[in-house]
């Protein structure tokens, strides 16, 4: 415990916490996207999958609480660091010229909070059923299709997942640096893997609202 306390004193240590929590959240996001692909296999498959998860309430709630703690730790560290960084440059430049940073790296403090709002909305909509349409605890398939048939709801999911993609594009490479994962032989693969992983997750997730909007996935199927 003493060592855990000590390790959170420095910026480097807080970045390690962000990197580890970010990595675990990324792992969840990949699993979540793969599970959701069962939408394309029809109502029985994905509703069966949902029933399977809900048949183990202990495990399900442990995972939920775990994920919540990860997000809280991630956001708390981000907030502390953001405050320190703002204090470190109290007088801004007239017009800084960026040479190496990317749109994604400069907008982590936008994509992150957008993600936070999106996560709250998403839980309210599909987990807790605050939905402007018919909603059932067991018929996950219909909840998703009825939701995405409303362009506004589909739009929120698309924007949320674009933010996730941008966040991961920078975050996945950044976490390698934060954890000291650097080796001359492998370094050039870090951005490649980050780009590929961010693309797969984003395209996978965004395909759901788009398929419903285009009528590829419908209630009757």
């Amino acid at each position: 415990m003493q060592q855990v306390m000590r390790i959170t004193r420095t910026n480097v240590a807080l970045k390690v916490v962000m990197a580890l929590t970010g990595l675990l959240l990324f792992g969840f996001v990949v699993g979540h996207m793969l599970g959701n692909l069962q939408l394309y296999a029809g109502p029985e498959t994905i509703n069966g999958y949902a029933a399977l998860l809900k048949s183990m309430p202990g495990l399900l709630w442990a995972a939920r609480i775990g994920l919540l703690l990860l997000v809280v730790a991630h956001v708390v560290c981000a907030t502390i660091l953001a405050t320190r960084n703002a204090e470190a440059r109290s007088t801004p430049y007239r017009k800084p010229k960026h040479q190496r940073s990317t749109y994604a790296s400069r907008t982590m403090y936008w994509s992150g909070p957008i993600l936070a709002f999106y996560i709250v909305y998403h839980l309210a909509h599909l987990t807790f059923g605050f939905a402007p349409h018919e909603w059932s605890y067991t018929d996950v398939y219909s909840n998703v299709v009825l939701g995405f048939q409303q362009p506004l709801i589909a739009g929120i999911y698309i924007v949320g997942n674009l933010a996730l993609g941008i966040h991961l594009y920078h975050g996945l490479w950044s976490l390698c640096q934060s954890l000291g994962l650097s080796h001359p032989r492998y370094n050039r693969y870090r951005t490649m893997v980050a780009t590929a992983a961010a693309l797969v997750v984003t395209i996978g997730n965004i395909s759901f609202p788009i398929s419903v909007l285009l009528g590829v996935v419908t209630l009757a199927s």
Partner: peptide, 19 residues
């Protein structure tokens, strides 16, 4: 690393501008 923080420098967010 500790002294760096005590001096009030910010944290690295891996922009790469320094390089």
């Amino acid at each position: 690393v500790m002294q760096h923080d005590l001096e009030g420098f910010g944290s690295c967010t891996n922009h790469g501008e320094c390089e």
